[in-house]
Amino acid sequence: MEEKKKTDSVETAGIPSSSAAAAAEENPLLSELVVRAVGVKKLYELGGETVHALRGVDLSVKRGEYVSIMGPSGSGKSTLFNMIGGLDKPDEGQVFIDEVDIAALDTFELAWLRCHKIGYIFQTFNLIPVASALENVMMPMLFAGMTQADAQDKAAEILKRVGLGQRLLNKPSQLSGGQQQRVACARALANDPAIILADEPTGNLDLKTGEEIIHMLEELKSEFFVTVISATHDHKMLAASDRVVYLTDGSITDIKRREDLDITFGTIGGQTH
């Protein structure tokens, strides 16, 4: 508890997220900290050489926050992302999602966590190529045990929300990059997750499309009450962040809040921000 308080006050104080606070108050099982990484280390052996991908990362993310992880290529963003998302195991340290240590979960619980708690968005979209946009978004719902009819309605509704109401039956190959990423966003939201993890969601998109996606993620964040953790190495993609965590060579070197960010909020999607 002491440790939690400390990280709380050091890293997440002063971030407005009243809805999340209310949710946490209503349900004592849910803490305000949705993600907590403690001393996470990850090593890779590459041809007899040891690569320190993460050198002991501590990070806490508050419910409803939009955190960007910023760093040059090879700094360990994806590695951290994979640890937080339960896609890979740290060599040392722990990751807590809703105060549950994910190292303690068995495969069934891990699958449940990925299905219900976390929505993933990848740089390469990673849609299922043989399935339509609708079926892609329905898939995690079906995994969660929803009926076909319910899943169909809900998936269509989310797709409409991300602006793809007319493309429900298109296969990913029939959609543009930006549209595919919108489908991926919709799919990430399928089971009302607590966290959306986005690893360079704009990496394969042009600037304008990328900004649209970021802007949409920011909107979805408050609409769906999710926490967004997004990795990027592009300064222009930081506009929506409540907090930016700078990662260099596997260590956190700086954390900046929105108000301290040294970026100009330009026009996004034609609107002045």
């Binding site: 949710a23 099982l29 849910l30 549950v100 509704e157 009302d192 607590a194 609409e223 769906f224 009450f225």
Partner: peptide, 12 residues
């Protein structure tokens, strides 16, 4: 669009 209820009871 209708807002989905925040599933506050959803824990592992």
């Amino acid at each position: 669009m209708a807002k989905y209820e925040y599933q506050s009871g959803k824990t592992i």
